[in-house]
Design a protein around this nucleic acid. Structure first.
Lengths: 201, 201
DNA sequence: TGTAAAAGTGACCACAAGTTCACAAAGGGG
DNA sequence: CCCCTTTGTGAACTTGTGGTCACTTTTACA
């Protein structure tokens, strides 16, 4: 029987992705070294050739997720010209990302991880909020162009934007029903888009 | 040394409250029989005189939390006449409840528990959503009175209402900063109240 | 081709979890 | 006053966790 040897950098990435996959399926409490190793068809101890401890793996996963989120924003901005169209596209895509790639937002709901790794709070918060900051910037520019109302601060609107998908995703996480999720978020977006229109005095 | 013996029904309640308290401080992963027992100054095995297993304790905690949420809604409706005032009061009070009594929403973020007790999904979802349903009812009545805009369905507005506190509470959970939390939710509420005003055509 | 570094293995450790069980102490009803 | 039910105890078992280590296998490079 020949053992398959994989290059170091590539292995690190494989482990991070395997960990994300496990996290997606089994949640934070289910993220164990043994499962990550099993997913790669490797002995648990092999993992420690590439990461000093579990905390480092969690870090790698968080970095991976952060990059994925940023990619989504960039692509949405490229594909749509009108700011509100871009935000609508981003909303649906980010929701889909949370559900499909992250298993119903298991990641941003991984306060579980925090119980064992309290020092990761900042990292997770950053991931959650980088989206809000990007959205805030987009809304601010749109307000200056007169496309959205300017009587409400952009950062407040951005927080409401986060509120459009976060609760429904939590609901989906608990009860399932993907088609329903998409419909709900679309409905929320439609209402938000209406309410964000410039006001005639 | 005299041992203190406690009546059965009272003990069950004590255990549920102790479990909630542990959950508040240590999160779902930190909710262990040993800690609950320690909180009551009792041997772990004593717990099993009153509950068949840990799942039953989780059930009891969820029931307890559900009752607390309903109480908050009832009290807010009693104390304020104007629907929007009642909703504003409820928002701040519910936020405070999540943070203070539930430890920054550790409860509704206890997807962690789900990893080990998947059958509790329905229970948790019910707790999260009973608030939205009550709010939806209040908004519907307000819309009929012409107090809030009626071009957006009440249940959609109710979902946005949940979005006013849920993301900030998650943020607080991750980074702390209670005073900031209160300010953010108030800011959100103010914006929501403005945007929910009836529209002049 | 030879050899040292890199990668993988499997046995093992200490620990904490949920749970069980034989036994001891308290309390209430006859 | 006795006895039986209820409540509490402490030790133990099982399982799964993160992590270590001596050892083997592959790979890359001189």
């Amino acid at each position: 029987m020949t053992r398959e040897y994989v290059d170091g950098a590539k292995r690190r990435d494989q482990i991070a992705r395997a960990a994300l996959s496990v996290l997606t399926r089994d949640g934070g409490a289910g993220l164990t070294i043994r499962r990550v190793a099993a997913k790669l068809g490797v002995a648990p101890s092999a993992i420690y050739r590439h990461f000093p401890d579990k905390g480092a793996i969690v870090d790698a996963v968080l970095t991976l997720v952060g990059e994925m989120i940023q990619d989504n924003v960039d692509r949405a901005l490229e594909e749509e010209d009108h700011p509100l169209d871009a935000l609508g596209l981003l909303l649906m895509r980010h929701t889909h990302f949370l559900v499909s790639d992250l298993g119903a937002g298991h990641i941003f709901l991984t306060t579980e991880i925090l119980a064992h790794y309290p020092d990761k709070n900042q990292r997770i918060a950053t991931n959650v909020e980088q989206l809000a900051e990007r959205v805030s910037g987009i809304l601010l520019r749109a307000a200056k162009q007169g496309i959205v109302r300017s009587d409400i601060p952009a950062h407040v609107l951005a927080r409401m934007y986060v509120g459009l998908f976060q609760p429904p995703v939590l609901h989906y996480q608990l009860l399932g029903g993907l088609t329903h999720l998409v419909g709900v978020v679309e409905e929320n977006w439609s209402a938000f888009r209406t309410m964000v229109q410039p006001q005639i005095k």
